[in-house]
Write a protein that binds this DNA or RNA. Structure first.
Length: 277
DNA sequence: ATCAATTAGAGCTTTACTTCA
DNA sequence: TATGAAGTAAAGCTCTAATTG
């Protein structure tokens, strides 16, 4: 599946030096992370509302004009390039700011024209050495995402096909997949860290509880009268083979002996449900 | 071919300031 | 003169395309 050889294996070793070097091995295998959230988040967070400035009609006009431009796309005519005065390495205008949601909202014809402009890119179209950054269109991103869901790596044939379909250079497709893999990995690392944090908290809590129990037992031991009246300890008998706490069958007459014979697993992860989406 | 680390452009938000009714 | 609304610019932040080794 997706994580073939890119599996992110987080391994945590918690060493307890006083407890026969018991170590806790966590081998966390990542699973598929929904990609829609992170990849499209930027599309949903714009909230800036530009309001016309009555006092500055020229600026207002300019701004509203710029707002309608898809920065990912080349203008449909030479005029557009003259207006923008920018030629990116990918022959896309990317120096004009504007709300993406509004840009996306422009009518279909315009979009088509702009999309068409963004294709047919060649490397030698610009002599500008400055790095102008392409911003992939929503459609391009969606197609790449879809493709990534199917396979997170590309063979040369797939790469070429995708590049052709999207009107991008194969190198761009390659880079996109590389960055996408990195994003996935980072996301998974964050999830794993959260999980480990919760595990740690649970262990700390468990430790605190056990310390308290030890203290109580010591206190009881120090008062012999109480100690003699006590029933034998009912907890903390470690089964040497399975390393689980076993409760002696005669521990308490009120409890089902079958249940008591069964070792009680120590499960510090009990409340740390590992998120896997 | 792929990765990790890094760079840098673009777009968005926040904030401080100005202008004006 | 004080006040609030609206506009603007700059700083800072996030995201991500692209580069480097």
């Amino acid at each position: 599946m997706m994580f073939g050889k890119e599996d992110l294996g987080l391994s945590l070793s918690l060493g307890f030096s006083q407890a026969h070097h018991h170590s806790l091995q966590l081998n966390l295998r990542p699973s598929l992370i929904p990609s829609s959230a992170d990849s499209c988040s930027s599309f949903h967070k714009s909230s800036c509302n530009h309001v016309s400035t009555p006092s500055d009609p020229f600026r207002t006009e300019t701004r509203s004009f710029l707002r309608g431009i898809d920065v990912n796309s080349l203008p449909s005519t030479v005029d557009c390039e003259e207006e923008a005065g920018v030629s990116s390495p990918n022959s896309t205008i990317s120096s004009v700011s504007g709300k993406r949601s509004e840009r996306e909202a422009i009518n279909g014809d315009e979009i088509d024209i702009e999309r068409a402009c963004s294709r047919g890119i060649s490397d030698d179209e610009d002599g500008d050495t400055s790095r102008k950054k392409l911003r992939l269109s929503k459609d391009q991103s969606a197609i790449l995402e879809e493709s990534f869901k199917e396979h997170n790596t590309l063979n040369p044939k797939q790469k070429m096909g995708l590049a052709k379909q999207l009107g991008l250079r194969p190198r761009q497709v390659e880079v996109w997949f590389q960055n996408r893999r990195a994003r996935t990995k980072l996301k998974q690392t964050e999830v794993d860290c959260e999980f480990l944090k919760r595990c740690c908290e649970n262990l700390t809590e468990e430790n605190r509880r056990l310390q308290k129990e030890v203290q109580e037992l010591r206190a009881l031991k120090l008062s012999p009268q109480l100690y003699m009246q006590m029933t034998p300890p009912t907890t903390l008998t470690m089964c040497p083979s399975c390393e689980r706490v076993a409760v002696p069958p005669n521990a308490s007459p009120t409890v089902d002996p079958r249940a008591l014979r069964r070792p009680v697993p120590i499960n510090p992860w009990a409340h740390a449900v590992r998120p896997r989406s």
